[in-house]
Amino acid sequence: MSKESMKLITFHVQRYSPEKDQKPYLQKFTVPSKHGMTILDGLLYIKENIDSSLSFRTSCCMGICGSCAMIINDYPHLACHTQIEEFHTDTLTVKPLPNMPIIKDLVPDLQPLFERHKSVKPYIIRHDDRDEMEQPTVEFSQKPEELDSFLQFTYCIKCGICIAACPTSASTKEFLGPQALAQAYRYCADCRDGGQDQRLAVVGKDHGVWHCHFAAACSEACPKGVDPAMAIQLLKRKLVSKVVGGKANPPSPLIPIPVDTKPKVKAPDFTVKQK
């Protein structure tokens, strides 16, 4: 890359060290940017070349792990998934995700998110055969169309962007939040699951699903297209259905693991000559 195609970008990064700062402040850094460079690349440049004390989370650098969610120019993004050029400006402001405490600089405390996630029992619950849950010998039946009814909601990477975008999470810290509620629906909608009543008891309480007022900002900001707002509304429908006497479908039956299956499609020929 030639020097001509480089552009200087000013990063205003929010800094806060609990050991020495009374309150957060913005610090200015100048970063040489080139075509294709992400916000995360810019932060890594600052850490490696200007100020090694800058703290932020990062891991996969490919929008899978959800570590690097932060507020970039007043909107939540994954830093690794967002290119500097997208903003069409020379000045960027980077802050930690709101609605969760700051540990240091751009590092939010995700513990409340994980606690709420755990509270909705995000796993398959079966009552018919507990041994089968621990030592599986058979399969739980599920048709492709049954999988499609919740597949979208399984893509959550727990980055916390939906909570940062949610206006209810902003003003009510006890609110379960879009992440946990969407995951509650994801398991309630899974035909293999039999724990719907347990989850509805959790999300139907105060600060549960009825605290969502459908601003849909969570779905708009979600970097993985999970659509938590839709999952939450479908969860409300399940709650209403239960109140008016609707009953949950029984969990899908156990079926023996097929032993004599044959591939329906012939394996492709080798593209490299075999010796």
Partner: peptide, 14 residues
């Protein structure tokens, strides 16, 4: 003890 900084947007959030 190091306390985490609160960062809720509060009423401005909505």
């Amino acid at each position: 003890e190091i306390r985490h900084r609160k960062n809720s947007l509060g009423i401005t959030g909505w």
